[in-house]
Design a protein around this nucleic acid. Sequence first.
DNA 1: ATCGTTAATCGACTATTAACGATAAAGAGA
DNA 2: TCTCTTTATCGTTAATAGTCGATTAACGAT
Lengths: 90, 90
Amino acid sequence: MEMNTEQMAKIFKALGHPTRVKIVEHLIKINTCVCGEIVDIFPFSQSTISQHLKLLKESGIVCGEIEGPKTYFCVDKTILKQFKDYIQLL
Amino acid sequence: MEMNTEQMAKIFKALGHPTRVKIVEHLIKINTCVCGEIVDIFPFSQSTISQHLKLLKESGIVCGEIEGPKTYFCVDKTILKQFKDYIQLL
DNA sequence: ATCGTTAATCGACTATTAACGATAAAGAGA
DNA sequence: TCTCTTTATCGTTAATAGTCGATTAACGAT
C-alpha cells in the first residue's frame, strides 16, 4: 500500500501544529493513553486537546478505541510506516 | 544539527497543502526552477503560487536565489535531510 | 436511579489561510 | 530611455483553524 499526495498532505497538515507533533511523539513513546493523560501534560483545555486528537484521527495517523467512558488513543503503526516510507523516497 | 519540535511543525505545516507537497516533489525532481515554470504546471494564479513558495521558503525546506528578474527555487538539501532523519526516528 | 468520571460536541470568538486580481519593483534588452 | 518579463506584495474575500467554556453523552460504581 502506498500513500498518495493528498493523504500525505492531510497527515502533514495534522502534524502542522507543535502540540499535535508532541502528542504523536508521546503516543509513540508510551504506546497508548487516554485523553485525560494528554490533557494533564499540555497547558490547554480538555476541549482543545480533544479537538487536536480529532484532527489527528481524521488524518489517519492516530486511532482511538472507545472503552467504557474512556478512549484509548494510539498511533496507527501501518499508516506511520507508509508515511515514513513516502518521506524516505523524497 | 538536529530539528526541534517547533521547526518540524513549521515544515509539516508548510507541507500541509497538496499543491505545496507537489511543488516540493517537483523541485526535488528537477533540482531547481523558476516561479513561472511552477505557475505553468498548476491551475492557480501567479500570485497564489508565489505565496505558496513564500510559505515553503519561510519553513526552511525551500530556498530561493534571485538572479536578475528571476528567482531560482530549490529544496534545501541540508534541511531536507534533517527533516527525514527526524521522521525516521519516530 | 443517581452520581461522578471521561470524552465529545456546540457555539462563540479571533486569527490565520487560500485564493484572486491589481499593482509595484527590478532587471534585461531594444 | 522605454518596454517586456518576471516575481513579490497589497488588498480583499471566503473559508478554515485554534481556543475556550458550557453542555451533552456514555459508562461505571454506589
